[in-house]
Amino acid sequence: PKRLFSLAAAVADSQRQPWLGIYKIADGLWWYIAVRDGQAILPDGDVIGGEAEIYAARERHSGFGDWTYVEGNLDDLSALVQGIKPSPVFALHGAPDGLLAAAALAIIVVVAGAGGLWWHAHQLAAQRARQLAMARIHALLEQQQVKKALPSPLLTTPLPDAWLAACDGAIENMPVSRDGWTAYRVSCVGDAASIVWWRMPGATTAVRPRGALSASGDKVFQSVPLALKHAAGRNNGQPLPAEESALFALLQGMGVKATIQSASSQPPASTLPGGKLAGKTALPAPQAQVHFTFPVAPFFVNWNAVPGFRITRVAMRADGWNVEGVLYGR
């Protein structure tokens, strides 16, 4: 299969090994590389991220050996790439004479011919490596510019307290029963509240709650828009690990267990190994999915205390309120 060039592999032998390198690629964008002896790049030693994330990654590795520490910027990294050279060719030394000299000369001629072709191919490969490495750096910069041009999801989604207030306003005056129909399921998802009404004995569809009727005629699905017109967000998020810690602390203080799972589909350019260039595809914000069950109605908790938290769904259940949301980092 066709192999693509790895920038990390290319610069691995540019410093005394083992070494840890941090390079500032652009505002808010840093690259971290961790190289062991023998140009071995650690599995998590080739990472793109924010300053705090990158220095935390280096801190995790710093206790594992006698490292050389290197820091630089895009110019320094570009200089390393421009300086990429093929491995040296070891020459034969000595002065044979007689028949041995003739035989040696013949061998040298043959080897030199093959070696010349190999050296030429190796030089072309090194040149191609430099070009691909620089293309990768420029692609990362383009992606960063696109990301900066897009509004943060923290600005485009309402604060959790405002969202829950809109949800509460849509369902607080909803009766438990209406015309023989019982509110069986109540939830808020996105920009609407949803109520599922079940028909009780004696009730008919002649008098029923507003909404879509099920195929059996025994359920009604009602949707009530949430009043979110003026519910603006606020872009004051922290690095994702700090957001996760803050939400855990808030919930643990109330005796609530939660599951916080980082999104499986991370940015395609989160590392610098070879791969298909993502062009101008925007990088999503670091995020994690959140799920927990709250024992009482969650409308009276200061969820805004976790700046990167956004609630996407609440649903009333027999054991409490099921809450789902997203944590956004920066």
Rank of each mutant, 00 (worst) to 15 (best):
Ala288Ser: 15
Leu251Gly: 11
Ser265Asn: 03
Pro286Asn: 14
Trp303Glu: 01
Ala282Asn: 09
Met254Val: 07
Lys257Thr: 15
Leu272Ile: 12
Asn302Met: 12
Ala258Phe: 12
Phe294Cys: 00
Ile260Ser: 10
Ala282Gln: 09
Ala282Cys: 07
Pro286Val: 09
Ala246Val: 09
Gly279Ser: 05
Glu244Asp: 05
Leu247Ile: 13
Lys257His: 14
Pro284Tyr: 09
Phe248Gly: 04
Pro298Asp: 05
Phe248Asn: 12
Phe300Ser: 01
Ser264Leu: 06
Gln252Thr: 13
Gly255Cys: 14
Lys280Asn: 14
Phe299Asp: 03
Ala285Ile: 09
Glu243Leu: 06
Leu250Trp: 06
Ala285Pro: 09
Gln287Lys: 02
Lys276Met: 12
Phe299Leu: 01
Ala246Ile: 12
Leu240Ala: 04
Ala249Phe: 12
Ser265Arg: 11
Pro268Tyr: 04
Gly279Thr: 02
Pro239Ser: 10
Lys276Arg: 11
Gln289Leu: 14
Pro284Ala: 03
Ala258Ile: 12
Pro298Glu: 05
Gly275Thr: 02
Lys257Gly: 15
Lys276Ser: 00
Gly255Glu: 13
Pro267Lys: 02
Met254Phe: 13
Leu251Ala: 15
Ala288Arg: 11
Glu244Cys: 04
Thr281Trp: 06
Glu244Lys: 02
Ala288Trp: 02
Val290Tyr: 06
Ala282Trp: 11
Thr293Tyr: 08
Leu277Tyr: 03
Leu250Thr: 08
Leu251Asp: 13
Ala297Val: 04
Glu243Trp: 01
Val256Ile: 15
Met254Ile: 04
Gly255Lys: 02
Lys280Phe: 07
Val296Leu: 01
Phe299Ile: 03
Gly253Cys: 10
Ala258Trp: 04
Leu247Gln: 00
Leu277Val: 05
Met254Arg: 06
Phe248Ile: 13
Ile260Leu: 05
Phe299His: 12
Phe299Cys: 04
Glu243Thr: 11
Ser262Arg: 15
Val256Ser: 10
Pro267Val: 09
Pro295Gln: 02
Ala285Met: 14
Leu283Tyr: 06
Thr259Phe: 07
Asn302Gly: 04
Glu244Leu: 09
Pro241Asp: 04
Val296Tyr: 00
Leu240Met: 06
Leu251Ser: 11
Gln261Thr: 14
Val290Ile: 14
Pro286Ala: 07
Gly279Gln: 05
Leu247Arg: 01
Ala278His: 04
Val256Gln: 07
Leu283Phe: 08
Gln252Ala: 13
Gln252Glu: 15
His291Gln: 13
Leu283Gln: 07
Gly275Tyr: 10
Phe299Ala: 03
Val256Asp: 03
Glu243Val: 11
Ala258Val: 13
